[in-house]
């Protein structure tokens, strides 16, 4: 199904631009195929659940640590500035807004892009170059459905859950720092923090995480599934999966923030 340039007499633009456009077109076909296969049985639910655990367990330690440190450090660094204006009591609100609206999902997505995206790219790339994907195909098993759809679904489900967890751990770290300075109860910290958040903030955070999860899964599987040139290709697939996922995550972050701000404005 993939488009390749055969017997090129001359390039339409230049080799680099032609290759890039072909790459974008192939990625479009890949995403299209994902949605077509998604709604065809069998769904391999068991594999999706296994992959969700894989994604979660692979990143949990790092996300816990990063989320906690982000909460503590962000609170510690913000306190002096707020104290100048006598607004230290706004700390829970400030940290909640920052973590829920941006940092929780962004930090989680970047960690998952590094850990999960590279791992998916390398795993599928290795399966491609050792003909394991071909072996699956000749056994009348749809490798796209079994390997790609299940992994993309898993990241799309697991990354939002991890994002919520990261946000919670970040708020916990922030609370511990606040509590060390002043006698604030756990409940009042969270009440204060969430009072400034709207439904659109929470919805945007979850939507963004779903989008990030999908991006990590689709890029990792696309790069791995189409890996070529032996072990070198496997390394390249893993590397490109991380770089491209992170790049797209940043672009998506900017776009979603803009759109949510417009929605709030109207």
């Amino acid at each position: 199904m993939f488009f390749t340039r055969s017997r090129p007499k001359r390039y339409v633009f230049s080799k680099g631009i032609d290759d890039m456009l072909i790459g974008v077109y192939n990625a479009y076909l890949f995403v299209g195929r994902f949605f077509r296969e998604l709604f065809r049985s069998p769904l391999h639910i068991r594999v999706v659940i296994d992959q969700c655990f894989e994604v979660g367990l692979r990143s949990l330690t790092l996300i816990t640590l990063t989320g906690f440190v982000t909460g503590v450090v962000f609170t510690k660094q913000s306190r002096p500035s707020l104290e100048v204006f006598g607004a230290a009591s706004w700390l829970p609100s400030l940290i909640s807004i920052a973590l829920v609206r941006a940092l929780g999902s962004l930090v989680t997505a970047l960690i998952c892009a590094g850990k999960v995206g590279s791992s998916i790219g390398a795993e599928l790339g290795s399966m491609r170059v050792t003909e394991q994907i071909d072996a699956m195909e000749v056994s009348a098993v749809n490798p796209f459905k079994y390997l790609v759809v299940t992994r993309v679904l898993a990241t799309t489900i697991a990354v939002p859950i991890l994002s919520l967890y990261c946000t919670f751990v970040g708020l916990l770290g922030s609370y511990m720092n606040v509590h060390a300075h002043e006698d604030t109860s756990f409940i009042s910290f969270f009440e204060n923090g969430f009072s400034t958040l709207s439904f659109i903030d929470l919805f945007t955070a979850v939507f963004k995480s779903i989008l990030f999860g999908f991006t990590i899964g689709i890029i990792g599987t696309y790069k791995g599934y189409n890996a070529t040139q032996g072990t070198r290709g496997v390394g390249r697939a893993a590397n490109q999966a991380v770089v491209l996922s992170m790049f797209l995550i940043f672009i998506e972050e900017i776009v979603v923030v803009q759109v949510s701000n417009w929605i709030k404005f109207f």
């Binding site: 003909e131 071909d134 009348a140």
Partner: peptide
């Protein structure tokens, strides 16, 4: 394809599965 057996040059065994799971896989799936 179910009527054709294909033995690959490098065997192409699924390296994340043990031998029993490798052998079961085409049967369980089909």
């Amino acid at each position: 394809r179910l009527r054709i057996g294909f033995s690959f040059q490098n065997s192409a065994l699924y390296d994340s599965m043990n031998i029993r799971q490798n052998l079961e896989f085409p049967l369980v799936m089909n």
